[in-house]
Amino acid sequence: MIAAAPWRWARANLFNGPLNAVLTLFLGYLIVVLLPGLVDWTLIKASLTAPDDRACAAAGGACWAFIADWFRFLLFGRYPYAEQWRPAIVIAVFIALLLASWNRRLPGGWLAAIWIAGLALSGLLMWGGVLGMPYVETELWNGVPLTLILAAGGIGFGYPLALLTALGRRSSMPAVRTLSVIYIEVARGVPFIAWLFLSLIVLPLFLPPGVTVPKLWRAEIAFALFIAAYLAEVVRGGLQAIPRGQYEAAASLGLGYWRQMRLVVLPQALAITIPAQVNTFIGAFKDTTLISIIGLFDPLLDTNTALNDPAWRMAYAEGYIFVAAIYFVFCYFMSLYSRRLEKTLSRERR
């Protein structure tokens, strides 16, 4: 029989049993009916260049022309047009950092160091003011670089706080434990948008008159405090999983509390919770879109702003799909890493 193998595969995977056969036929029917239309809309009848959305509609396909027209704004927002090579490099730096983090053989200390260096470099590029690059204020840091910097900065500033809080949560001192619990429960029990609003509106109230904090920093503070609470719970799970014997062995060797944590307990706790940590990072990265509600120009607000252009109002699907694709690439990559790590760790532990 010609092509016996595919037929055997189909028998085993698509038609094994009456229910599956029915499902396959039904889904197959749907695909046959819908797929050509989808391909038509996305590719064949799509317009890459068009004056406005009505022209695209006339052509009967997707309006990628909207993306082509607003491309730079969607990615970089209101960052000065001539200087947009700088945020472009920042994006490249982040991609490089993520790819470097994929390599598990890099020890934790080195990894943290290159991320800090990468953040510093990004800050330098975005701000400018040196090396002949004109100064650009944080208000104009928009689009994808804003999201990357906000997420990385929030994680970076939040991480030490998370470690301290996790240790505090497990402390034998009741006051410290209570403070940690209150912080964690309050930070996690309230929607993130509330914290953003708080930092936007309430933070200036807490400062002495005349002291102003740029919006980006206010968002960053809220972000760091929020992520730290979630990370603290993840790290706490790791601390709980370490057998008590490890704590005791370190103590019996004469190591003091902080040395015990730094040399023996935390390295192990952090190592076994990496998948959960990465999941927290993914969630945090997606949460950055909430800054669009408080008027910070991330790619989502950029898109909504671009869609206000009367020529392109109906191109919302194309716009959102474009931004979704950007987020999808970053998040999917991170989740693949986390899953791969989970598999490796569970194999090692057995």
Binding site: A250, S252, Q268
Partner: peptide
């Protein structure tokens, strides 16, 4: 306590070596 722990060594039933 610290001084005593320096002078007393302990071996545990579960070994408790540091796996990392």
């Amino acid at each position: 306590i610290e001084a005593i722990r320096r002078e007393v060594g302990m071996v545990f039933q579960q070994f408790n070596l540091f796996p990392h």
